[in-house]
């Protein structure tokens, strides 16, 4: 199935867990935050959340800000 990750399409296995996606991307770090379809996902739910077709995943990291 296809999901969007930070605005780019990506083919992944059906019902891939969010935690597995993060591990694949080497983004399973403590300073990372994730939203799916603009809903912030608590870290404890990463291992239970199955991604669905066309889900929009945003993976954010700390950055400079004004």
């Amino acid at each position: 199935m296809r999901v969007m990750v930070n605005g780019e399409g990506r083919d992944v296995q059906t019902n891939l867990l969010l935690s597995e996606l993060l591990r694949t991307l080497e983004m399973d770090k403590p300073y990372v935050a994730v939203s799916v379809n603009m809903n912030c996902i608590p870290k404890l739910e990463y291992a239970n959340l199955e991604l669905k077709e066309n889900d929009e995943v945003e993976i954010l990291v700390p950055y400079q800000g004004g």
Partner: peptide, 19 residues
């Protein structure tokens, strides 16, 4: 100090260093 969140990308490498 104020900080933000941004998409991880090659252009923003160094997030860990910034933090």
């Amino acid at each position: 100090v104020t900080v933000s969140l941004r998409r991880q990308s090659k252009a923003l490498e160094g997030a860990e260093n910034f933090w």
